Computed example of a mutant assay.
Amino acid sequence: MAAKDLSATPDDVLIRFRGVRKEFASGTVAVEGLDLDVRRHELLALVGPSGCGKSTTLRMVNRLVEPTAGQILLDGDDIGAGDPVALRRCIGYVIQHVGLFPHRTVAQNVATVPRLLRWDRKRTTDRVDQLLDLVGLDPATYARRYPHELSGGERQRVGVARALATDPPVLLMDEPFGAVDPVGRRRLQIEFRRIQEDLGTTVMLVTHDIDEAVQLADRVAVFSKGGVLEQIDDPVRLLAQPANDTVAEFVGQGRALRLLGLGTVDRADLSPAGAVASGATIPLGTRLDDAFSALASSSKDSLDVVDDGQVVGQLSASALVDSLQRLTESGRD
């Protein structure tokens, strides 16, 4: 049976799908009877195999795709009852290849929606500068550049800035980092998560990458063919306790390693510092997968863990296993 997410209280919910169905003219049913609540200020990742309806679900929120049946509410209002153009101006949208206007400068691209809303020049310029700073691009350096003068990661940052121009309550992202090289992609993910937490924007993120989903999202929604919602959960619970074989197969065999990426070294993992230094150190709060890599590359049986420059204990391989076990059990509570 498909999972339903009906637990949030009305005040917690910003976007609500109720019995939403999408059938295309070809007869293909992309989404069938979807019930889904997206909570305020959360980052919800939609994952699943190709053709499972996750992008269709996303695009129904800003009415780039119109549902065949059912209802989508935004802050309690039926989005189908209003002007779709006005709706899109208050919802940010970022896609994989960004879609910047090639004949416009970075500043002009970021200012697209403010100008449509007839903001005055000073307000627009101030907002553009603020957003470029926010995404890590110096306005003095980048504002007058054109898209072809930017790297893929820089173009993606401009796309995020443009989507946030009018401080939308909702940001829709469809494979936003897919065209960026792996190293740049990881940096962008970390930077975007920081921005999202600072702003409190509600984000729906479509990705085919389960690792990206569990690293970024507050909750992950796993879809199967036909837009069937199989499970929606926080990343730890999703990895530790897949709802069914469909979810387990999609999440894959590396669930334990992915769980390592969600935990960090804390004082409960440490044994007292030895009289002799281990020769290798990691900071308290290091991600468990990074600690595992450091331990594997060390010739010692344990690592010294430091906090504010002081050794506060040692981390052993057995302690790492115990930490992973606690993380797994927390997902099953």
Rank of each mutant, 00 (worst) to 15 (best):
D266Q: 12
V13Y: 13
E42D: 12
P84C: 02
P84Q: 00
D266N: 14
G254R: 15
F250N: 01
L137M: 13
V13N: 09
S316G: 14
Q310C: 06
P272G: 10
A268H: 15
G274L: 09
E212H: 00
R127T: 01
L315Y: 09
D209S: 00
E42C: 09
A143F: 11
D83F: 09
A8N: 02
P67S: 05
L284N: 02
I79H: 12
G136N: 00
D35V: 05
Q71D: 07
N109Y: 06
Q71R: 14
Q253V: 15
P242N: 04
G274P: 14
S330H: 11
G178N: 08
L288Y: 03
L6Q: 13
A294R: 14
S55C: 07
V47F: 08
H148E: 08
Q71V: 13
T207N: 08
D75W: 07
Q314Y: 04
P49N: 03
R121K: 15
Q189M: 06
L132I: 02
Q215H: 11
P10F: 02
D138M: 05
Q231Y: 05
T202F: 11
H148L: 11
D133Q: 12
D290A: 15
A256I: 02
T56K: 07
R157A: 03
G274H: 12
I72Y: 05
S316M: 05
S323R: 13
L43G: 03
V113D: 01
A256G: 06
F223N: 03
T9Q: 14
G53P: 07
L205C: 11
E329Q: 15
Q130P: 04
V312P: 13
A45W: 01
D35P: 11
D120V: 03
Q108G: 06
A25N: 12
E212D: 01
T286I: 10
H41L: 01
R267F: 05
L188M: 14
L36F: 15
P242M: 04
T281Q: 14
Q71S: 09
D218H: 14
Q96I: 01
D233H: 02
S299R: 11
A319Y: 09
S151Y: 07
A273Q: 09
L295K: 11
C90D: 15
T246C: 13
L303S: 04
A319F: 13
D211A: 10
R287L: 13
F177R: 01
T141W: 08
L58G: 01
G99Y: 05
E42H: 12
Q231M: 06
A296R: 15
H103C: 11
R155Y: 07
D333Q: 13
R162L: 07
P49D: 00
R162M: 07
D120Q: 09
L164M: 10
T112K: 09
G51C: 04
R219N: 10
D304P: 12
H41V: 00
L164W: 06
E212M: 00
L320H: 03
P168G: 07
N244V: 06
R144E: 10
A81T: 04
D266K: 13
P283V: 13
G261D: 03
G252R: 12
L172H: 03
L131D: 06
D322S: 14
S299M: 08
A140T: 02
Q189F: 02
V203K: 11
L229K: 06
S318C: 10
D181N: 10
